[in-house]
């Protein structure tokens, strides 16, 4: 009897002709902005991964010692497509390496946020009652802080800011977005039949949450996480700009903007300009990608 059923299910799948992933990909591909976002994201990942190969110069090598004063604050040219900074470092190479820092922070901070936000959101949404009240209260409290000040305060508690600290601190605030989305999804699913069936079978709560409901709400969580990447990368750049993130001589985009800012008044715009373009490009990439994923994955929700 059991085998019969499984055979039937298999047949249905074969008849439909394509798997879920293929269908998603087809829908995703139709969306021009989504594809643009995907291509842009891939280029950033490529830049980060292969910076060691494609960067024309060492990102922290100060060319003024080998090439003399000509290498100092050189304007963009064929040898230095984005110019050089005060120490003769090639800005193009530094921007490429900067992708590593930004992506690392983006990915790890998002992981921290997911680790906190998904369980709490699931608990609040599934359990409701006092549990929901407490978690929602916590979310509201965190929301009340100006994000950048909260992260700054956490980072400044420790004497030596390290990148680990930065992404943990960002994750500690970014989880509220993930939590909100997860909670909403769990609330809308908790009274559905398949959950009641699992409950009636006597399954433990954690199993219902993680095995039965969570797989159904993965899509909105992934979308939220993707859309959140841009915000995290901007936040990290802001921290570095204020001097609390990556420390010199790390090629961090935010740090480069702050290093170059005093030379802007002298017309040496390139030092601060190109890292900003890189940030904008990255944020755009993740926004397009997130929007595209939403359109492809989330057929039921109209924004």
């Amino acid at each position: 009897m059991n085998t019969n059923i499984s055979v039937k299910v298999k047949n249905v799948k074969v008849e439909s002709g394509e798997g879920l992933l293929q269908e998603l990909w087809r829908r995703f591909r139709r969306n021009k902005l989504a594809m643009l976002g995907l291509i842009m994201t891939v280029t950033i990942i490529l830049a980060a991964v292969s910076a060691g190969v494609i960067a024309p110069y060492d990102p922290i090598k100060q060319l003024i010692w080998t090439e003399g004063a000509a290498a100092k604050l050189a304007s963009p040219s064929l040898t230095h497509p984005m110019g050089t900074d005060l120490y003769g470092r090639d800005i193009f190479s530094r921007v490429l390496y900067g992708a590593r820092i930004s992506l690392q922070i983006g990915i790890f901070a998002t992981l921290v946020a997911l680790l906190i936000g998904v369980p709490l959101g699931a608990l609040a949404g599934y359990k409701g009652g006092i549990c929901d009240d407490l978690i929602s209260w916590l979310v509201n409290v965190v929301f009340a802080f100006p994000f950048i000040l909260f992260v700054l305060a956490v980072v400044s508690i420790f004497q030596n800011p390290s990148l680990y600290l930065v992404f943990v601190a960002i994750g500690l605030i970014d989880w509220v977005f993930i939590c909100r989305v997860t909670r909403g999804q769990f609330i809308s699913l908790r009274s559905r039949e398949f959950v009641e069936a699992a409950h009636a079978l006597g399954l433990p709560t954690w199993r219902i949450i993680f095995r039965h409901i969570l797989p159904n709400v993965i899509a909105p969580i992934i979308i939220q996480a993707t859309l959140g990447m841009g915000g995290i990368i901007t936040l990290e750049a802001g921290l570095a700009y204020l001097g609390f993130g990556a420390q010199p001589p790390t090629p961090s985009w935010g740090l480069m903007i702050s290093e170059g800012q005093q030379y802007i008044a002298q017309g040496k715009w390139w030092w601060s300009f190109f890292p900003g373009v890189a940030i904008m490009y990255t944020v755009l990439a993740f926004n397009f990608l997130g929007d595209g994923l939403r359109d492809a994955l989330d057929v039921r929700q109209k924004r």
Binding site: A237, Y241, I257, Q261, I264, W269, S272, I279, V283
Partner: peptide
Amino acid sequence: ILGVSAPVFWVGLLLLLVFAY
């Protein structure tokens, strides 16, 4: 779209560059 994705401190610097300096 550019305005949504540009970091605020960078926009500020560009505006300074153009309109003040």
